[in-house]
């Protein structure tokens, strides 16, 4: 079957067309519920320990509002571009879908570069390592865990793009794209709380 004829037969919302696809999305929400618990406990730990700085630097000394603002803007925009990818998928426009997924991956990489630079500055110039204080440990655990999620998301979406190129958009591959987009949005929602509770509150004191 040619690619065009195949796409004509694809239902309007291919991610929800099969029971397997619907179950995949539902199961992924159960996973996101677990992720909420994971990040909730990391946030709680951070909130309990954020003032236990020992002799190490405090949040007010460390954090830069401009870097946090740029990182926030990058991640927020990448969430929107992953929405555009799903919209393109619903329009059965594979080329646009791959383009928007590519933009999402590039923005995710930009966010990671910024975070790695930030951590490097803290460790190399501010003497703020993982074991410096309870504040530093809980900070790196929370923000680092989120960064690891971004890194995994970048890898995941990149691999999905390769798979789409190989297998095309079908009722099997569409739920995977949809679920990856949900994951990416969730990472962005977690970041909303990180920039608020870690960085902005850290600046307030």
């Amino acid at each position: 079957m040619s690619q065009a004829a195949h796409l004509d037969k694809l239902p309007p919302e291919p991610e929800k067309a099969t029971l397997e696809g619907r179950n995949k999305v539902l199961g992924f929400w159960l996973f996101l519920g677990g992720e909420t618990v994971l990040f909730g406990t990391l946030f709680a730990t951070f909130i309990a320990l954020r003032n236990s700085v020992l002799d190490g630097p405090t949040g007010i000394e460390l954090f830069s509002l401009s870097i946090t603002a740029i990182a926030t803007f990058i991640l927020l925009t990448s969430s929107l571009t992953s929405v555009f990818a799903i919209q393109a998928m619903h329009h059965k426009n594979i080329k646009n879908m791959l383009t928007w997924l590519g933009v999402t991956v590039v923005l995710g990489l930009g966010f990671l570069v910024l975070e790695i630079y930030e951590f490097y500055e803290y460790v190399a110039h501010d003497g703020f390592g993982f074991t410096t204080s309870a504040f530093s440990s809980s900070f790196y655990a929370l923000v680092g865990f989120h960064g690891a999620h971004v890194a995994l998301g970048v890898l995941w979406i990149s691999l999905l793009m390769l798979q789409i190129k190989k297998k095309g958009l079908t009722t099997v591959t569409a739920p995977k794209i949809y679920v990856a987009s949900l994951y990416w949005h969730f990472i962005d929602v977690v970041w909303v709380f990180i920039f608020t509770i870690v960085y902005l509150m850290g600046k307030v004191g």
Binding site: T36, V37, T41, A48
Partner: peptide, 25 residues
């Protein structure tokens, strides 16, 4: 979807309250 996330949020909020009101160093 709402049930799963609300359950997660319930645990998260419980941990949050514990961290703010019960834990001190």
């Amino acid at each position: 979807q709402i049930l799963f996330l609300a359950t997660g949020a319930f645990v998260a909020i419980t941990a949050f309250i514990m961290a703010v009101y019960w834990v001190w160093w």
